[in-house]
Design a protein around this nucleic acid. Structure first.
Length: 161
DNA sequence: AGAGTGATTGTTGTG
DNA sequence: CACAACAATCACTCT
């Protein structure tokens, strides 16, 4: 059962003959104003030795990464279609640009290409992401249920094991 | 040596 | 309705 005909058919028909489906997905591609963030690189250290970077002000750099293991039960967000494309693109990008250093450049290239990519090409990843989201939703539902049950430990009637 | 950052867009969740 | 935060990855950076 590695194949999912129903899913495949949906995707196939959507990419070939079913503009309605495409239109539906187009909704996902809502026009968003791309706000460019001006992030200063810390690599200036090579040159300017007078200033390095504000360390204490975390507020300036809002990037808290509190790894809550406690919520490890919580289903982590599944990678979005873009990420799946990134996975593929990254391989090719590194192959074509072995000199490339980090993924930051890849991400930029990916983002650019992602925008120029045809919807039909993106729909593939969208489909995957959609499926993942379904699993995520299911996992989350169970997680919520489980959490509720856990919080509701008042019952304490774990007669089942 | 290890932990953190940065960059990309999309999706979800909350106010 | 709108914003915010987080999702994976991996070279590079700092302590």
């Amino acid at each position: 059962m590695t194949k999912k005909p129903s899913k495949m058919k949906d995707f196939f028909s959507a990419s070939t003959e079913n503009p309605l489906k495409i239109a539906e997905k187009e909704k996902l591609l809502k026009p968003k104003s791309t706000e460019k963030k001006m992030t200063m690189r810390t690599r200036q250290s090579t040159k300017s030795a007078e200033i390095t970077k504000p360390m204490s002000p975390k507020e300036l750099k809002p990037k808290p990464k509190p790894k809550k293991k406690e919520d490890s039960k919580m289903p982590k967000k599944p990678p979005t279609a873009f990420f799946y494309f990134l996975e593929d693109f990254r391989k090719e990008y590194q192959k074509q640009n072995p000199d490339v250093k980090s993924m930051r450049d890849v991400g930029k290239a990916c983002g650019e290409k992602w925008k120029i990519m045809s919807y039909e090409d993106k729909v593939q990843y969208y489909d995957i992401a959609t499926e993942k989201r379904a699993a995520f939703d299911d996992a989350m539902t169970e997680y919520k249920k489980r959490k509720e049950n856990d919080e509701d430990q008042g019952s304490g009637d774990n007669y089942e094991m």
